[in-house]
Design a binder for these strands. Structure first.
Length: 314
RNA sequence: UAAUAUUUC
C-alpha cells in the first residue's frame, strides 16, 4: 500500500490528477484498500491544483469509505481551502477536526495561520499562534516564518524583528526562509539598511544567504529607489556563486522602473534573456511597461505590451 | 507512503 500511495503522490505532484484518480480507483483491483494516507494524498493533490471542489469530494469519499481522517488529512484540507481563498471553510475544517477528536498539531495550526495571513487577518494569525501555545503546542520555525511573513505583508518591520527575537528566545534556529522573510519585511517597510544588516547576520550565523534573501534585498533597494545598490546586490549574487533567476531580474527591472532608469531596465532584460535564458513573464512585462510609463515613453510601453500579447504571456 | 512558511506585490 505504501508503494501505491507513493505512486499516487508522485502522480499528484506531477500534476497528473486524472492518472492519480485512475490509480486510486484501481486499488481494489489490486486487492488494496485505501488508507488514510491514500485519501489525504488525493485531497492534497486536488487542493494544490486549485480543484477545491474535487478536494472536498475526496474528503466526502473518504468518510463514505469509513476511513478516519487524521491530522494530515485536515491540514491538507485547510491548506486547500486557504488556497481557494475560503477562509470560513478553512476555519470550519479546523473546528471539525477538534470535534472529530483529532487534536490539531503544529502543522494544522500553521496551515490555518497561513490562511489568516493570506487573507490579511494578522490579528487572527497571531491570536491563533498564542492559542496553540496555550494548548501545549510548541510553535516551530515554520510558525515563526509565517508570522514574520505576516509582518512583512503588513509592512511592520518592528514587529517582524520582534517575532524574530521571539524565535531566538525560544531556542529555535532561524532558517533561510525566516531570514528572507525578515529581509522582505525590511523591503516592504522601506528600510533597506536593515535588510543589509540581516544579510550580514545570515553570513555570520553560518546561514549563507540564498537567492530568496538576495532577491528580497534587491527589492528592498528598489523600493528605496537605490538602483545602484540593487545592482551591487546582483554582483554579490554572482560572487556567491549563485545563479540569478527570473525573480532577480524582475526585481532589478522593477527597481529601475521605480527610479525611472529605463535604459538600465532594458539592460537587465537583455542579460536575463540572452545570458541566462530566462523568458520574460508577466512580472517582467508589468515592470517594463511601468518603467516606460513613468518615464513617459508610452510608445515603448505599447511596443512592450504588444510583444507580451504576441508571446502569449498571460 | 501523505499535510504547513519566504523573494518579482
Amino acid at each position: 500500500i505504501r508503494h501505491y500511495n507513493a505512486l499516487l503522490d508522485a502522480l499528484g505532484k506531477a500534476n497528473r490528477l486524472d492518472d492519480a484518480e485512475s490509480l486510486f480507483c484501481e486499488f481494489e483491483k489490486y486487492g488494496l484498500a485505501h488508507d488514510v494516507a491514500s485519501h489525504s494524498i488525493m485531497i492534497s493533490a486536488n487542493g494544490k491544483s486549485g480543484r477545491i471542489e474535487d478536494a472536498e469530494r475526496c474528503f466526502r469519499r473518504m468518510k463514505k469509505e469509513n476511513v478516519k481522517p487524521n491530522a494530515f488529512t485536515y491540514s491538507a484540507l485547510i491548506e486547500a481551502f486557504g488556497r481557494a481563498g475560503k477562509l470560513q471553510k478553512a476555519e470550519e475544517t479546523f473546528r471539525s477536526m477538534i470535534e472529530d477528536g483529532v487534536a490539531p498539531n503544529v502543522v494544522a495550526y500553521n496551515a490555518l495561520i497561513k490562511v489568516y495571513v493570506k487573507r490579511g487577518k494578522n490579528d487572527k494569525a497571531f491570536k491563533l499562534s498564542e492559542e496553540m501555545i496555550k494548548n501545549g503546542k510548541v510553535p516551530d520555525v515554520i510558525t515563526y516564518g509565517t508570522l514574520i511573513d505576516a509582518c512583512a505583508k503588513a509592512r511592520d518591520v518592528e514587529k517582524a524583528f520582534k517575532v524574530f527575537n521571539d524565535l531566538k528566545k525560544n531556542q529555535i534556529k532561524p532558517n533561510r526562509v525566516c531570514y528572507a522573510s525578515l529581509i522582505d519585511a525590511c523591503a516592504k517597510g522601506k528600510q533597506p539598511e536593515r535588510g543589509f544588516e540581516v544579510l550580514e547576520l545570515m553570513k555570520s550565523s553560518k546561514t549563507p544567504p540564498d537567492i530568496f534573501a538576495y532577491n528580497a534585498l534587491i527589492d528592498a533597494c528598489g523600493r528605496a529607489k537605490m538602483v545602484h545598490r540593487a545592482f551591487q546586490v546582483y554582483d554579490e549574487i554572482l560572487i556567491a556563486g549563485l545563479i540569478p533567476d527570473r525573480v532577480t531580474f524582475n526585481a532589478l527591472i522593477s527597481a529601475c522602473g521605480r527610479a525611472r532608469e529605463v535604459e538600465k531596465a532594458f539592460e537587465a532584460l537583455d542579460i536575463m534573456i540572452n545570458k541566462y535564458g530566462h523568458e520574460a513573464d508577466r512580472h517582467t512585462y508589468n515592470s517594463l511597461i511601468d518603467a516606460c510609463g513613468k518615464s513617459e515613453k508610452m510608445l515603448k510601453a505599447f511596443e512592450i505590451y504588444n510583444r507580451m500579447i504576441k508571446n502569449n504571456v498571460k
